[in-house]
Design a binder for these strands. Structure first.
Lengths: 249, 249
DNA sequence: CCGGCTTATCGTCAATACGACGACAACGAA
DNA sequence: TTCGTTGTCGTCGTATTGACGATAAGCCGG
């Protein structure tokens, strides 16, 4: 069924192309930005690390395909925020021939992965930093053009933290200002002044909402628990004004 | 040749989809933001206004396809800046069936269109404002989901003017500060204070470069002519720091 | 040649935002 | 109790912004 021509009435010059979705799944664990990668089982690039992804099925949306691939490869339905990143052209990507790939970005709190060796290929979190460093370390390279796609995704995430509430997508529903700051520090790979960050985060209208409760048990003074302000639904919809700008590099 | 399966060795569940490129060609004429639209000749949506675009050919890049479609439909190779916008999913877009469409954004100085009624369908500039107003005016609706795509493109352009030098893509190689301000005013649909804008534009490092020459002949005091600063090539690559923020709506 | 009109450019000023950093609060541990 | 740690509030000097006055430098009609 799948390879039949899906749309009669199209000009004969139109190419029918295989379309895939790839997912850049980012999270923050231990103060470090990490990405979800699988080890490929099949050629091409068998054994090499790659972004999870796969072919779009005949009757599904791009976003649905991305969500489905995530479930298939991680074994769970990840929480967090999923958005389209950009599309990578059909040429010079896959040795098998032209393939169009629509990359998606998932920003999620750290979630557990089922025991390795399940149905899908080995899937695990990997530190982003060495992967962005380029052709530095051996064996660190990603399959296809996934290194470039990852770089684009990280840059998108970094930019979006500035002017949207997307950083909260990395946290649970309730979080402290310090946890939120840790997200910014991990994604931007910088250190931020806790006092200035606190002032900025709590002072930006429409961003944070005090739950009235506090943490307990940890070391140091208990911290107030916040959640994303009302407008909720999609944290990407919240416009931070003024924005939280990252320091110059 | 075209409908042959391009990539043997793919899983049989993969769908082969027709892929199109659409172009949102924006310009500023007479202080108003305008978009390049064609009148469709064929069904579906015959006679309705639509974004120029067409199917991707077997052996071309997405960006190449967008550029080719522009040449075919306008009769000239438009100047300006072309970038990918985003991709619209295969379902519920085209009555003929699933189609993936990769929208591109062209920001260009006003360029002349060959006499209407040429080889391609009627192509012309249209004011953006009434098209964004939604289902307001009769006959103003665009084909397919192009109204939504146009809205996304305009929003992208508006955002990019803030933190990149992309506004210069709407101008010729040399321009006055007033012309540049007119671009911002048209795209953002606001009025900006000429004195503050002048201070900001000329004071932002890496943005404008004085040519030393001035305009002449016009009304009022002659204005200094500027060009985009060295780093040139792609104005989108110039990062405005601090950014030129649009006023709150 | 002269005001008058128009547009360009420079300055001033108050309000605001930001980075650096001091001070205090509130917890657990010793 | 004292200390170490982390969270929260303030202060201060600087940079940026928006509002707006003032001046410069061309055209135009008398």
């Amino acid at each position: 069924m799948s390879r039949a021509i899906p749309t009669p009435g199209l000009p004969p010059t139109a190419a029918l192309l295989p379309v895939t979705v790839d997912v850049i799944g980012l999270t923050v664990r231990g103060g470090v930005l990490q990405v979800l990668l699988v080890q490929r089982l099949l050629e091409p690039f068998a054994g090499v690390l790659a972004l999870p992804g796969g072919f779009v099925l005949p009757d599904e949306t791009l976003e649905a395909a991305a969500a489905r691939e995530l479930v298939e490869e991680t074994g769970v339905a990840p929480p967090g925020h999923l958005e389209q990143l950009r599309t990578y052209g059909p040429l010079d990507r896959d040795p098998r021939g032209p393939v169009v790939s629509v990359a998606h970005l998932l920003l999620a709190p750290a979630f557990g992965l089922p025991a390795a060796g399940g149905d899908a290929a080995d899937v695990a979190w990997h530190d982003v930093r060495p992967l962005l460093a380029g052709r530095g370390g051996a064996g660190r390279a990603l399959a296809f053009d996934h290194a470039r796609i990852l770089a684009d995704g990280v840059e998108r995430a970094r930019a979006k933290l500035e002017y949207s509430a997307l950083a909260t997508a990395f946290c649970g529903t309730e979080f402290t200002v310090a946890e939120l700051r840790s997200v910014y520090e991990a994604v931007w790979d910088v250190r931020l002044d806790p006092r200035n960050f606190h002032r900025k985060a709590t002072g930006t209208p429409g961003f944070l909402e005090d739950t009235g409760r506090t943490t307990s048990g940890g070391t140091g003074r208990p911290a107030a628990l916040y959640r994303l302000a009302e407008a909720a639904g999609d944290p990407a919809a919240v416009v931070l004004n003024p924005p939280l700008m990252r320091p110059d590099a």
